[in-house]
Amino acid sequence: MMDILFDTQLASFFTSAAFIIIGLFAAIFLDNIIKKIIGIAFIEEGANLFLVTLGYKPGGIVPIFLPGMNSEWFAANSAYALPHALVLTSVVIGASTLAVMLAIAMVLYKKHGTLSTSKILGDEK
């Protein structure tokens, strides 16, 4: 048990799983539209955290090749940089999705006067 707590990578994986599960719960079961959107942000961040964690290396160094470094030593010790680069893009996508969703929520609030999803989406037929 203590090993799990002190292993940074494993702990991060568990955190990302918890993010995704909490986010799914919020997005499915909560009625308030803002809470739903927060839950959705949780799912996205969970997936991003998962990707970041993949690039982690215990005791690794920053993956920047400086002059004078031994390339063999660098290759053996640097963290994996690709997931970090990918997450940057995916965070931007997540943010724009979130912005669009909040904008729609604003419009719907003005139209219906309530934030309850069942009331907003239930009455249109």
């Binding site: 995704i20 799914l24 997005a27 539209i33 739903k36 959705i40 799912i43 996205e44 969970g46 997936a47 991003n48 990707l51 995916s90 997540g94 999705t97 669009v100 969703m101 729609i104 929520a105 419009v107 719907l108 139209k111 907003i120 989406l121 249109e124």
Partner: peptide, 19 residues
């Protein structure tokens, strides 16, 4: 707007899982 919101909520479940 309602349909767009539904699509986005469903998409926010499908998209991150794809990721």
């Amino acid at each position: 707007y309602e349909t767009a919101l539904k699509y986005m909520i469903l998409g926010s479940i499908g998209g991150p899982l794809l990721l």
